[in-house]
Amino acid sequence: MPIKDFNWVRTNGKWKPKNVPLGYWMVDFDGFFKELRSYGIRPLVSLHSKYELGGAEHGDWKIKIPQKKVFAAIKRYLNRIHDMWEKSSV
């Protein structure tokens, strides 16, 4: 199951979704994870890091920020997914 979050932004007078770091914007992960748990579903998760990561979010070979920052961001959001999943069991 791919997992990502978004926010609405107005660009050239039109509302469009913008990918943002996980768990801070529009998606109700707590409700979503509780619903999955209620059916006994424990999905495999694929984290989509499509927010600004110096080009890494587009698969660029040469990124504009240190590689350590990219890996730290991904680790931070993997931990966030885990924490949100664990919180939903309460």
Rank of each mutant, 00 (worst) to 15 (best):
R42C: 03
F32P: 01
V27R: 06
V20M: 10
F32Y: 13
V20Y: 06
G13W: 03
R37D: 08
Y51L: 01
V20I: 07
K50F: 13
K34L: 02
W15G: 01
K50I: 06
S46Q: 12
N7D: 15
V27F: 00
G31M: 08
E52Q: 12
P43K: 13
N19A: 11
Y39K: 10
L36W: 09
R10Y: 03
N12P: 01
S38A: 11
Y39P: 01
G54H: 02
Y51Q: 12
Y24W: 11
H48T: 03
L44N: 13
L53T: 03
R42T: 08
K16N: 08
K50D: 11
G31C: 05
L22K: 00
K34Q: 14
L47P: 01
W15N: 05
L36M: 14
N7I: 07
I41Y: 03
Y51H: 15
K18Q: 15
L36D: 00
Y24V: 15
G31P: 01
K50C: 09
K16Y: 07
W15I: 13
G40W: 15
H48C: 04
P21C: 12
K16E: 11
D30P: 00
K18R: 09
K18I: 08
K16C: 10
L47C: 02
H48A: 06
V27I: 13
F32I: 07
T11A: 11
H48P: 01
V9R: 14
F33D: 05
K50N: 12
F32W: 09
S46E: 13
G40E: 09
S49E: 11
K34E: 08
M26G: 09
Y39C: 04
G23Y: 12
R37E: 02
R10W: 04
I41S: 03
W25N: 00
S49T: 14
W15H: 06
V20C: 08
N7K: 10
N12I: 09
L22Q: 06
V27W: 00
K34C: 05
S46I: 14
G40Q: 10
G31Y: 08
G40P: 08
D30V: 03
P21H: 09
V45M: 10
Y24Q: 10
W25G: 00
Y24E: 14
E52K: 06
R42D: 04
Y39S: 02
Y39F: 15
D28N: 15
Y51D: 14
V9N: 05
R42W: 07
L44F: 05
H48D: 10
D30R: 10
P17C: 12
N19E: 07
G54K: 01
R37F: 04
P43W: 13
Y51S: 09
L44D: 14
L47E: 02
Y51G: 05
Y24M: 15
K14L: 15
I41W: 01
V27Y: 00
K16V: 15
E35H: 10
L36H: 02
F29Y: 14
P17Y: 03
S46V: 13
P21D: 08
R42V: 07
L22E: 04
R37Y: 11
V27P: 01
W15A: 02
K50T: 06
G23K: 08
M26D: 12
V27N: 04
K16P: 02
K14M: 13
W25A: 00
I41E: 05
W8V: 00
S38D: 07
Y51F: 05
D28A: 01
F29S: 03
L22N: 05
F33N: 11
